[in-house]
Protein backbone atom coordinates (compact mmCIF):
# COMPACT_ATOMS: atom_id res chain seq x y z
CA UNK A 1 0.00 0.00 0.00
CA UNK A 2 1.64 3.15 -1.12
CA UNK A 3 -0.65 5.51 0.73
CA UNK A 4 -2.31 5.06 4.07
CA UNK A 5 -5.99 4.82 3.55
CA UNK A 6 -6.64 7.39 6.24
CA UNK A 7 -4.63 9.98 4.34
CA UNK A 8 -5.66 13.38 5.36
CA UNK A 9 -3.98 15.68 2.94
CA UNK A 10 -5.01 18.87 1.31
CA UNK A 11 -5.78 19.21 -2.32
CA UNK A 12 -8.40 17.40 -4.31
CA UNK A 13 -5.82 16.38 -6.87
CA UNK A 14 -4.44 13.94 -4.36
CA UNK A 15 -5.64 10.73 -5.92
CA UNK A 16 -8.96 10.14 -7.60
CA UNK A 17 -12.17 11.25 -6.02
CA UNK A 18 -14.16 8.66 -4.15
CA UNK A 19 -16.60 6.87 -6.35
CA UNK A 20 -19.75 7.59 -4.37
CA UNK A 21 -21.43 10.57 -5.96
CA UNK A 22 -18.18 11.67 -7.50
CA UNK A 23 -19.74 12.89 -10.69
CA UNK A 24 -22.15 15.11 -8.92
CA UNK A 25 -19.42 17.01 -7.18
CA UNK A 26 -18.50 20.20 -8.91
CA UNK A 27 -14.94 20.91 -9.86
CA UNK A 28 -13.63 17.39 -9.26
CA UNK A 29 -10.23 17.05 -10.88
CA UNK A 30 -9.65 13.56 -12.27
CA UNK A 31 -6.11 12.58 -13.06
CA UNK A 32 -7.03 8.92 -13.64
CA UNK A 33 -9.09 9.76 -16.67
CA UNK A 34 -6.22 11.59 -18.34
CA UNK A 35 -3.84 8.79 -17.36
CA UNK A 36 -6.13 6.11 -18.70
CA UNK A 37 -6.58 7.89 -22.00
CA UNK A 38 -2.83 8.37 -22.30
CA UNK A 39 -2.20 4.76 -21.45
CA UNK A 40 -4.67 3.53 -24.05
CA UNK A 41 -3.03 5.75 -26.64
CA UNK A 42 0.37 4.41 -25.67
CA UNK A 43 -0.89 0.86 -26.03
CA UNK A 44 -2.39 1.52 -29.45
CA UNK A 45 0.87 3.09 -30.52
CA UNK A 46 2.67 0.07 -29.13
CA UNK A 47 0.54 -2.29 -31.18
CA UNK A 48 1.72 -0.48 -34.27
CA UNK A 49 5.33 0.05 -33.26
CA UNK A 50 6.15 -3.18 -31.46
CA UNK A 51 6.07 -5.53 -34.44
CA UNK A 52 8.51 -3.31 -36.29
CA UNK A 53 10.84 -3.23 -33.30
CA UNK A 54 10.46 -6.97 -32.86
CA UNK A 55 11.31 -7.72 -36.46
CA UNK A 56 14.47 -5.69 -36.06
CA UNK A 57 15.43 -7.53 -32.90
CA UNK A 58 14.71 -11.03 -34.08
CA UNK A 59 15.28 -10.43 -37.77
CA UNK A 60 13.03 -11.85 -39.04
CA UNK A 61 12.26 -14.85 -36.85
CA UNK A 62 14.03 -16.63 -34.06
CA UNK A 63 16.48 -18.77 -35.95
CA UNK A 64 17.20 -21.76 -33.76
CA UNK A 65 14.78 -24.51 -34.81
CA UNK A 66 14.24 -25.67 -31.24
CA UNK A 67 13.36 -22.16 -30.06
CA UNK A 68 11.13 -21.66 -33.08
CA UNK A 69 9.31 -24.92 -32.49
CA UNK A 70 8.95 -24.08 -28.81
CA UNK A 71 7.46 -20.68 -29.66
CA UNK A 72 5.05 -22.22 -32.14
CA UNK A 73 3.82 -24.88 -29.72
CA UNK A 74 3.53 -22.30 -26.94
CA UNK A 75 1.46 -19.98 -29.14
CA UNK A 76 -0.58 -22.96 -30.30
CA UNK A 77 -1.53 -23.99 -26.77
CA UNK A 78 -2.37 -20.38 -25.87
CA UNK A 79 -4.34 -19.68 -29.06
CA UNK A 80 -6.23 -22.92 -28.76
CA UNK A 81 -7.09 -22.50 -25.09
CA UNK A 82 -7.75 -18.76 -24.83
CA UNK A 83 -11.04 -18.64 -26.75
CA UNK A 84 -12.39 -21.47 -24.62
CA UNK A 85 -11.09 -19.82 -21.47
CA UNK A 86 -12.69 -16.50 -22.43
CA UNK A 87 -16.05 -18.11 -23.15
CA UNK A 88 -15.83 -20.33 -20.09
CA UNK A 89 -15.10 -17.28 -17.97
CA UNK A 90 -18.00 -15.40 -19.59
CA UNK A 91 -20.34 -18.32 -18.93
CA UNK A 92 -19.08 -18.56 -15.36
CA UNK A 93 -19.53 -14.83 -14.80
CA UNK A 94 -23.02 -15.07 -16.25
CA UNK A 95 -23.82 -17.93 -13.86
CA UNK A 96 -22.62 -15.87 -10.91
CA UNK A 97 -24.24 -12.63 -11.97
CA UNK A 98 -27.51 -13.65 -13.58
CA UNK A 99 -28.59 -17.16 -12.50
CA UNK A 100 -30.13 -17.07 -9.03
CA UNK A 101 -28.69 -19.48 -6.49
CA UNK A 102 -32.16 -20.96 -5.98
CA UNK A 103 -32.02 -22.41 -9.50
CA UNK A 104 -29.19 -24.74 -8.55
CA UNK A 105 -30.81 -25.90 -5.34
CA UNK A 106 -33.84 -26.88 -7.38
CA UNK A 107 -31.89 -28.42 -10.28
CA UNK A 108 -29.59 -30.61 -8.20
CA UNK A 109 -30.46 -33.14 -5.53
CA UNK A 110 -30.03 -31.70 -2.07
CA UNK A 111 -27.77 -34.45 -0.78
CA UNK A 112 -24.21 -34.05 -1.99
CA UNK A 113 -23.72 -37.77 -2.65
CA UNK A 114 -26.74 -37.78 -4.95
CA UNK A 115 -25.81 -34.47 -6.58
CA UNK A 116 -22.38 -35.76 -7.64
CA UNK A 117 -23.51 -38.24 -10.35
CA UNK A 118 -26.18 -35.82 -11.59
CA UNK A 119 -23.54 -33.13 -12.01
CA UNK A 120 -21.29 -35.62 -13.79
CA UNK A 121 -23.94 -36.49 -16.36
CA UNK A 122 -24.78 -32.80 -16.73
CA UNK A 123 -21.17 -32.36 -17.87
CA UNK A 124 -22.22 -33.87 -21.19
CA UNK A 125 -24.06 -30.69 -22.13
CA UNK A 126 -21.10 -28.31 -22.10
CA UNK A 127 -19.54 -28.75 -25.50
CA UNK A 128 -16.01 -27.59 -25.11
CA UNK A 129 -12.63 -28.54 -23.85
CA UNK A 130 -11.20 -28.52 -20.38
CA UNK A 131 -10.17 -24.86 -20.32
CA UNK A 132 -13.80 -23.77 -20.30
CA UNK A 133 -14.89 -26.13 -17.56
CA UNK A 134 -12.56 -24.79 -14.86
CA UNK A 135 -14.08 -21.30 -14.63
CA UNK A 136 -17.58 -22.71 -15.09
CA UNK A 137 -17.09 -25.07 -12.14
CA UNK A 138 -15.82 -22.13 -10.11
CA UNK A 139 -18.92 -20.15 -11.03
CA UNK A 140 -21.14 -23.06 -9.99
CA UNK A 141 -19.46 -23.21 -6.58
CA UNK A 142 -19.84 -19.47 -6.15
CA UNK A 143 -23.54 -20.02 -6.72
CA UNK A 144 -23.85 -22.54 -3.93
CA UNK A 145 -23.43 -25.82 -5.79
CA UNK A 146 -21.69 -28.27 -3.45
CA UNK A 147 -17.96 -28.35 -4.31
CA UNK A 148 -17.84 -32.13 -4.89
CA UNK A 149 -20.67 -31.87 -7.41
CA UNK A 150 -19.04 -28.94 -9.19
CA UNK A 151 -15.72 -30.82 -9.25
CA UNK A 152 -17.36 -33.87 -10.80
CA UNK A 153 -18.82 -31.59 -13.44
CA UNK A 154 -15.35 -30.15 -13.98
CA UNK A 155 -13.81 -33.58 -14.54
CA UNK A 156 -16.57 -35.16 -16.59
CA UNK A 157 -17.53 -32.35 -18.92
CA UNK A 158 -14.40 -32.14 -21.10
CA UNK A 159 -14.33 -35.90 -21.65
CA UNK A 160 -17.94 -36.93 -22.21
CA UNK A 161 -19.49 -34.10 -24.20
CA UNK A 162 -20.78 -34.95 -27.69
CA UNK A 163 -18.06 -33.03 -29.57
CA UNK A 164 -15.31 -35.01 -27.88
CA UNK A 165 -17.10 -38.34 -28.25
CA UNK A 166 -17.64 -37.78 -31.97
CA UNK A 167 -13.97 -36.85 -32.38
CA UNK A 168 -13.06 -40.08 -30.59
CA UNK A 169 -15.30 -42.12 -32.87
CA UNK A 170 -13.68 -40.51 -35.93
CA UNK A 171 -10.18 -41.16 -34.62
CA UNK A 172 -10.91 -44.83 -33.88
CA UNK A 173 -13.04 -45.88 -36.87
CA UNK A 174 -12.45 -49.60 -36.33
CA UNK A 175 -12.93 -49.52 -32.62
CA UNK A 176 -16.34 -48.23 -31.47
CA UNK A 177 -15.72 -49.78 -28.05
CA UNK A 178 -13.18 -47.03 -27.46
CA UNK A 179 -15.94 -44.40 -27.38
CA UNK A 180 -17.98 -46.45 -24.91
CA UNK A 181 -14.92 -47.11 -22.80
CA UNK A 182 -13.93 -43.45 -22.79
CA UNK A 183 -17.40 -42.32 -21.75
CA UNK A 184 -17.75 -44.95 -19.04
CA UNK A 185 -14.27 -44.62 -17.60
CA UNK A 186 -14.32 -40.81 -17.59
CA UNK A 187 -17.72 -40.55 -15.95
CA UNK A 188 -16.87 -43.23 -13.39
CA UNK A 189 -13.57 -41.62 -12.45
CA UNK A 190 -15.23 -38.19 -12.19
CA UNK A 191 -18.04 -39.45 -9.95
CA UNK A 192 -15.61 -41.39 -7.76
CA UNK A 193 -13.45 -38.29 -7.40
CA UNK A 194 -16.52 -36.29 -6.36
CA UNK A 195 -17.57 -38.86 -3.77
CA UNK A 196 -14.09 -39.23 -2.36
CA UNK A 197 -13.80 -35.47 -2.10
CA UNK A 198 -17.21 -35.29 -0.42
CA UNK A 199 -16.14 -37.92 2.11
CA UNK A 200 -12.54 -36.94 2.82
CA UNK A 201 -12.14 -33.37 1.63
CA UNK A 202 -11.34 -31.01 4.50
CA UNK A 203 -12.58 -27.48 4.72
CA UNK A 204 -9.05 -26.14 4.74
CA UNK A 205 -8.40 -27.62 1.30
CA UNK A 206 -11.72 -26.61 -0.16
CA UNK A 207 -11.51 -24.77 -3.41
CA UNK A 208 -11.99 -21.09 -2.82
CA UNK A 209 -13.89 -19.69 -5.76
CA UNK A 210 -14.59 -16.02 -6.12
CA UNK A 211 -17.37 -14.76 -3.95
CA UNK A 212 -20.58 -13.61 -5.46
CA UNK A 213 -21.45 -9.98 -5.87
CA UNK A 214 -21.81 -8.04 -2.71
CA UNK A 215 -24.86 -5.91 -2.19
CA UNK A 216 -25.03 -2.56 -3.88
CA UNK A 217 -23.54 -3.58 -7.19
CA UNK A 218 -25.46 -3.85 -10.38
CA UNK A 219 -25.48 -7.20 -12.13
CA UNK A 220 -23.63 -5.85 -15.13
CA UNK A 221 -20.85 -4.56 -12.91
CA UNK A 222 -20.72 -7.89 -11.08
CA UNK A 223 -20.49 -9.69 -14.43
CA UNK A 224 -17.70 -7.44 -15.61
CA UNK A 225 -15.77 -7.75 -12.37
CA UNK A 226 -16.09 -11.53 -12.28
CA UNK A 227 -14.86 -11.86 -15.86
CA UNK A 228 -12.00 -9.46 -15.36
CA UNK A 229 -10.89 -11.15 -12.18
CA UNK A 230 -11.08 -14.71 -13.55
CA UNK A 231 -9.31 -13.85 -16.75
CA UNK A 232 -6.38 -12.21 -15.03
CA UNK A 233 -5.81 -15.13 -12.72
CA UNK A 234 -6.79 -18.13 -14.81
CA UNK A 235 -5.12 -16.53 -17.84
CA UNK A 236 -1.82 -16.15 -16.03
CA UNK A 237 -1.88 -19.77 -14.92
CA UNK A 238 -2.88 -20.91 -18.37
CA UNK A 239 0.36 -19.35 -19.59
CA UNK A 240 2.28 -21.31 -16.92
CA UNK A 241 0.73 -24.49 -18.29
CA UNK A 242 1.43 -23.53 -21.89
CA UNK A 243 5.07 -22.75 -21.07
CA UNK A 244 5.50 -26.13 -19.42
CA UNK A 245 3.67 -28.05 -22.11
CA UNK A 246 5.62 -26.39 -24.92
CA UNK A 247 8.92 -27.05 -23.18
CA UNK A 248 8.18 -30.74 -22.65
CA UNK A 249 6.73 -31.08 -26.12
CA UNK A 250 9.99 -29.87 -27.58
CA UNK A 251 12.38 -31.41 -25.06
CA UNK A 252 11.10 -34.98 -25.05
CA UNK A 253 11.26 -36.90 -28.32
CA UNK A 254 8.21 -39.10 -28.55
CA UNK A 255 10.40 -42.07 -29.46
CA UNK A 256 11.78 -42.16 -25.89
CA UNK A 257 8.33 -42.78 -24.57
CA UNK A 258 7.21 -45.26 -27.17
CA UNK A 259 10.28 -47.38 -26.53
CA UNK A 260 8.77 -48.56 -23.25
CA UNK A 261 5.35 -49.11 -24.75
CA UNK A 262 5.77 -52.87 -24.99
CA UNK A 263 5.71 -53.48 -21.25
CA UNK A 264 2.05 -54.01 -20.20
CA UNK A 265 1.64 -52.08 -16.93
CA UNK A 266 4.35 -49.56 -17.68
CA UNK A 267 2.73 -48.64 -20.98
CA UNK A 268 -0.46 -47.54 -19.21
CA UNK A 269 1.54 -45.43 -16.77
CA UNK A 270 3.67 -43.93 -19.52
CA UNK A 271 0.72 -43.01 -21.69
CA UNK A 272 -1.02 -41.44 -18.66
CA UNK A 273 2.16 -39.48 -18.01
CA UNK A 274 2.32 -38.50 -21.66
CA UNK A 275 -1.25 -37.18 -21.45
CA UNK A 276 -0.29 -35.05 -18.44
CA UNK A 277 2.82 -33.66 -20.09
CA UNK A 278 1.50 -32.97 -23.57
CA UNK A 279 -1.61 -31.06 -22.39
CA UNK A 280 -3.53 -31.67 -25.57
CA UNK A 281 -7.03 -30.26 -25.93
CA UNK A 282 -9.64 -32.94 -25.26
CA UNK A 283 -11.21 -32.33 -28.66
CA UNK A 284 -8.02 -33.40 -30.39
CA UNK A 285 -6.41 -35.91 -28.06
CA UNK A 286 -8.15 -38.89 -29.67
CA UNK A 287 -6.18 -38.34 -32.88
CA UNK A 288 -2.91 -38.31 -31.00
CA UNK A 289 -3.94 -41.39 -29.02
CA UNK A 290 -4.77 -43.20 -32.26
CA UNK A 291 -1.31 -42.35 -33.56
CA UNK A 292 0.43 -43.97 -30.58
CA UNK A 293 0.57 -47.23 -32.46
CA UNK A 294 3.03 -48.87 -30.14
CA UNK A 295 0.68 -48.66 -27.16
CA UNK A 296 -2.01 -51.15 -26.20
CA UNK A 297 -5.69 -50.14 -26.44
CA UNK A 298 -5.84 -49.87 -22.65
CA UNK A 299 -2.88 -47.52 -22.64
CA UNK A 300 -4.56 -45.38 -25.32
CA UNK A 301 -7.71 -45.33 -23.19
CA UNK A 302 -5.66 -44.15 -20.21
CA UNK A 303 -4.32 -41.35 -22.40
CA UNK A 304 -7.89 -40.32 -23.29
CA UNK A 305 -9.24 -40.50 -19.74
CA UNK A 306 -6.31 -38.84 -17.95
CA UNK A 307 -5.71 -36.01 -20.43
CA UNK A 308 -8.97 -34.09 -19.99
CA UNK A 309 -8.81 -34.47 -16.18
CA UNK A 310 -5.17 -33.81 -15.35
CA UNK A 311 -2.57 -32.12 -17.47
CA UNK A 312 0.01 -29.40 -16.93
CA UNK A 313 -2.24 -26.69 -18.31
CA UNK A 314 -5.17 -27.84 -16.16
CA UNK A 315 -3.09 -28.17 -13.00
CA UNK A 316 -1.94 -24.59 -13.46
CA UNK A 317 -5.47 -23.40 -14.20
CA UNK A 318 -6.88 -25.17 -11.16
CA UNK A 319 -4.17 -23.80 -8.92
CA UNK A 320 -5.02 -20.33 -10.16
CA UNK A 321 -8.74 -20.74 -9.77
CA UNK A 322 -9.12 -22.88 -6.67
CA UNK A 323 -5.86 -22.39 -4.80
CA UNK A 324 -2.75 -24.47 -4.38
CA UNK A 325 -3.77 -26.32 -1.23
CA UNK A 326 -6.66 -27.71 -3.21
CA UNK A 327 -4.75 -28.59 -6.36
CA UNK A 328 -1.93 -30.30 -4.46
CA UNK A 329 -4.43 -32.90 -3.32
CA UNK A 330 -6.99 -32.93 -6.08
CA UNK A 331 -4.67 -33.40 -9.06
CA UNK A 332 -2.90 -36.54 -7.70
CA UNK A 333 -6.28 -37.95 -6.62
CA UNK A 334 -7.76 -37.56 -10.09
CA UNK A 335 -4.59 -38.84 -11.78
CA UNK A 336 -4.68 -41.97 -9.63
CA UNK A 337 -8.41 -42.52 -10.16
CA UNK A 338 -8.29 -41.87 -13.90
CA UNK A 339 -5.39 -44.28 -14.39
CA UNK A 340 -6.95 -47.00 -12.23
CA UNK A 341 -10.44 -46.69 -13.69
CA UNK A 342 -9.19 -46.65 -17.28
CA UNK A 343 -7.06 -49.74 -16.64
CA UNK A 344 -10.10 -51.54 -15.30
CA UNK A 345 -12.35 -50.29 -18.11
CA UNK A 346 -9.77 -51.26 -20.71
CA UNK A 347 -9.53 -54.73 -19.24
CA UNK A 348 -13.30 -55.20 -19.31
CA UNK A 349 -14.33 -53.35 -22.46
CA UNK A 350 -11.42 -53.39 -24.90
Amino acid sequence: MSQPSTANRPGPQDGPPPEAGADRRPGGFRPPRALAVLAVLAVLLGIVALPAAGRLLTAPHPTDPAVRTWATVFMAVCAQALPFLVFGVALSAAITAFVPASFWTRALPRRTYAAVPVAGIAGAILPGCECASVPVASGLMARGVAPPAALTFLLASPAINPVVLVATAVAFPDDPAMVVARFTASLTAAVLAGWIWARFGRTAWQPAPRRTAGPGRSRAVAFLDAMHHDLMHAGGFLVVGALAAATLNVAIPRSWLTSVAEVPVVSVLVSALLAVLLSICSEADAFVAASLTAFSPTAKLAFLVVGPMVDLKLIALQAGTFGRAFTRRFAPLTLLLATAVSSAAGWVLL
Binding site: P65, R68, T69, R254
Partner: peptide, 22 residues
Amino acid sequence: FLAAPPALGSFAVRQAEQTPQA
Protein backbone atom coordinates in the same frame (compact mmCIF):
# COMPACT_ATOMS: atom_id res chain seq x y z
CA PHE B 1 3.78 -9.34 -31.66
CA LEU B 2 7.55 -9.72 -31.65
CA ALA B 3 8.34 -13.21 -32.86
CA ALA B 4 5.26 -14.43 -34.75
CA PRO B 5 6.67 -17.98 -34.84
CA PRO B 6 6.17 -19.84 -38.12
CA ALA B 7 4.55 -23.21 -38.72
CA LEU B 8 6.19 -26.36 -37.41
CA GLY B 9 9.06 -27.65 -39.51
CA SER B 10 11.56 -30.46 -39.69
CA PHE B 11 12.65 -30.10 -36.05
CA ALA B 12 9.14 -30.92 -34.86
CA VAL B 13 8.97 -33.83 -37.30
CA ARG B 14 12.10 -35.42 -35.83
CA GLN B 15 10.75 -34.79 -32.34
CA ALA B 16 7.42 -36.48 -33.04
CA GLU B 17 8.86 -39.42 -34.93
CA GLN B 18 8.16 -42.80 -33.44
CA THR B 19 8.44 -46.44 -34.32
CA PRO B 20 6.38 -48.09 -35.55
CA GLN B 21 4.92 -45.31 -37.62
CA ALA B 22 1.21 -44.62 -37.47
